[in-house]
């Protein structure tokens, strides 16, 4: 069973394991936020711009909001956006890429052309414009990010489909008269999905950074606590209260690193060639 093999390989990667543990911690924090955070994220206390103390572990901001609680609750938004956007991208990319690679011919050419052009479009700015025009709810943000980063997955899946359709078990399925749709769903996609899984962790990391950037510009969802927003709001007070921006940013760094580490571990697990030194040394 390929899953156990992959897991065994993954376990050999120290980066992968660290990333997994880190992510698990962050997930716990996000899931149990109400129990972990001593204050509500928008709760105003009387301690304005207080430095870190026992009462407020990471200090407070200019409205007296506890930074630690903000960081804890902010994890929810980042994880939600990162994961959802990347999954949207994975689904879109996989379907389009599999269709292109498996079908071949003119369909493949058209789709590939479309993907190439799409890749050339600068995405951050596109996201910016769309968010401006269509509103800045989390829903739109996730949708738009996912809708702009899928080409990478499409390319990966297409390459996989091209190889897979020559394999014996696929040809057997065709001979047996299975419908194209079923073949794609049952054979091509499940077998070709692995590089996409690795890439998706990277895209999750990127999506989190993008969302942070949008929030920093003030374009995030105004109702939800978000790390980017905290950095944005802390900016004006940075000289006197560095903790308001420092800790949310550190949280971003840790979360993003966790995803990158996991991605590294997955890449290692998927690549059977263990790198050895050549006659060079």
């Amino acid at each position: 069973m390929k899953a156990t093999y992959l897991w065994n390989r993954f376990r050999q990667s120290s980066y992968g394991l660290v990333g997994l543990i880190l992510l698990a911690v962050i997930l716990m924090v996000a899931a149990f936020a109400p129990f972990i955070a001593p204050y509500k994220p928008n709760e105003l206390t009387n301690d304005l711009l207080a430095p870190p103390s026992f009462k407020h572990f990471l200090g407070t901001d200019h409205l007296g909001r506890d930074v630690f609680s903000g960081v804890v609750y902010g994890s929810r938004v980042s994880l939600l956006v990162g994961v959802t956007a990347a999954i949207i991208s994975a689904i879109l990319g996989t379907m389009i890429g599999a269709l292109a690679g498996y079908t071949g011919g003119i369909v493949d050419e058209l789709i590939s052309k479309f993907v190439d052009i799409f890749l050339m479009i600068p995405t951050f700015f596109l996201i910016l414009i769309v968010v401006v025009l269509y509103g800045n709810s989390l829903f739109y943000i996730m949708l738009v990010i996912g809708g702009t980063i899928w080409p990478a997955n499409a390319r990966l899946m297409r390459a996989q489909a091209l190889t897979l359709r020559e394999r014996a078990f696929v040809k057997a399925a065709i001979t047996l008269g299975e419908s194209q749709f079923r073949i794609l769903l049952k054979h091509i996609i499940p077998n070709g999905i692995y590089p996409i899984i690795a890439n998706t962790t990277l895209q999750m990391a990127g999506a989190i950074l993008t969302e942070a950037g949008l929030s920093f510009l003030g374009l995030g969802d105004p109702n939800t606590p978000s790390w980017g927003k905290m950095i944005f709001e802390g900016r004006s007070y940075i000289q006197t209260a560095w903790w308001t921006s420092f800790f949310p940013g550190s949280a971003i760094v840790l979360t993003v690193m966790a995803f990158y580490f996991i991605g590294d571990g997955l890449n290692f697990a998927l690549n059977p060639k263990l790198k050895e030194k050549g006659a060079w040394e």
């Binding site: 990391a205 942070a212 690193m257 580490f261």
Partner: peptide, 22 residues
């Protein structure tokens, strides 16, 4: 490399500004 790649550019900028300018 991982560390810096994980940093939001605006945050790093703020921190550098804090340390070196302020």
């Amino acid at each position: 490399a991982y560390l810096f790649y994980s940093m939001p550019s605006f945050w790093l900028g703020l921190m550098l500004m804090l340390v070196f300018a302020s």
